[in-house]
């Protein structure tokens, strides 16, 4: 008997010592609505404490992916795991907060009552004072006792954020969290996201606001036409620099030399070279020296960092050309 108990204890210790699973893991998610393929093949992960940005044009399948993760839409194929449990198990959502793109709450309830309802549905034990703090964190402290029916769109979105955060989630999924907010509200949400990040809460953020994603996300997944077009850390995606050169008298040999430096494009006399992330400090001076040796007239040289917006557009354009 004691041997069995000892075995159980050692098994429990082994399980405890296992590394924590990802906050989100999904593989091969697929969804079709009638003839329309919304999600063709999406696999992604969000590590614990990581902020992942989901980017892509309208209709790329971002919201459908989020809804499949949350069990709101049934995937045609693929698997998903939230916080170590299969997404089809409702218990997987016990520590998940969600702000939907279409945020509507019971307009016959007060803001306080909406939060209390969600705390009860989540099965969490959150004292009333903490719920009030949550409303205060999104700027709704003074409207706590008002019916939601009288709230503006922006206030409803703030309430939605409080609903997502009230049950002490380990994973927060935000679908366009600032779509109805003014610039001050957007700044507030950014601060809130950064504080979530600092407290180790994983965040999956779907936003059209690239600047917002760039400021708070550790990693980005870009979706296009239901597939992952690109993914990586901001360092990987934005590490590239662009070299713009105003040149005259470019010979065939000079063109070949330019192409060896990186992907080359040309508009008139302006040559643009996308420099690889691993380029060293001598790449640009060496290229310019070689061009001069080939007899090319170098009028201007400018290196710029590729913005996430440029990178996103580049990925989406190259995808549509395929």
């Amino acid at each position: 008997m004691s041997a069995v108990v000892a075995d159980q204890h050692s098994a429990q210790r082994l399980v405890r010592e296992l590394p924590a699973s990802d906050a989100v893991w999904c593989s091969g998610l697929r969804k079709r609505y009638g003839r329309q393929v919304a999600v063709a093949d999406v696999s992604l992960t969000v590590a614990r404490g990581e902020v992942l940005g989901l980017l892509g044009p309208n209709g790329a399948g971002k919201t459908s992916v989020i809804k499949m993760l949350l069990g709101l839409v049934r995937p045609d194929a693929g698997e998903a795991i939230l916080l170590g449990r299969p997404a089809r198990d409702p218990r997987s959502r016990a520590n998940v907060g969600y702000l939907p793109e279409l945020f509507r709450y019971q307009h016959w309830l007060t803001a306080t009552e909406v939060l209390a309802l969600h705390v009860r549905l989540a099965g969490a034990d959150v004292p009333a004072a903490e719920q009030r703090e949550c409303l205060a964190a999104v700027g709704l402290a003074r409207r706590a006792g008002d019916r939601v029916g009288g709230f503006s769109k922006g206030m409803q979105q703030r309430l939605g954020l409080a609903v997502a955060l009230v049950a002490r989630p380990q994973l927060v999924i935000l679908d366009e969290p600032t779509s109805a907010l003014d610039p001050v509200g957007r700044a507030d949400i950014r601060s809130l996201l950064l504080s979530l990040k600092n407290s180790g809460v994983a965040v999956l953020l779907n936003s059209h606001l690239i600047g917002e994603v760039e400021r708070v996300c550790d990693r980005v997944v870009i979706l296009d036409r239901g597939c992952v077009a690109s993914s990586g850390t901001l360092q990987e995606l934005l590490g590239q620099r662009e070299l713009k050169l105003e040149l005259g008298g470019v010979t065939g040999a000079a063109s070949e030399r330019l192409a060896t430096a990186g992907r080359l494009s040309r508009t008139g006399n302006t040559y643009t070279v996308a420099l690889p992330a691993d380029q060293d400090a001598t790449t640009v001076p060496n290229l310019v020296a070689d061009l001069v040796r080939f007899g090319v007239h170098v009028h201007a040289v400018e290196t710029t960092r590729i913005s996430l917006e440029d990178r996103l557009l580049d990925i989406l354009r190259s995808g549509s050309e395929r």
Binding site: P90, A94, L99, P100, L121
Partner: peptide
């Protein structure tokens, strides 16, 4: 229809 069910049904419930 209004989307009110989204936040509600994303809770850990059947």
């Amino acid at each position: 229809e209004s989307g009110m069910a989204l936040a509600l049904l994303a809770r850990p419930l059947r």
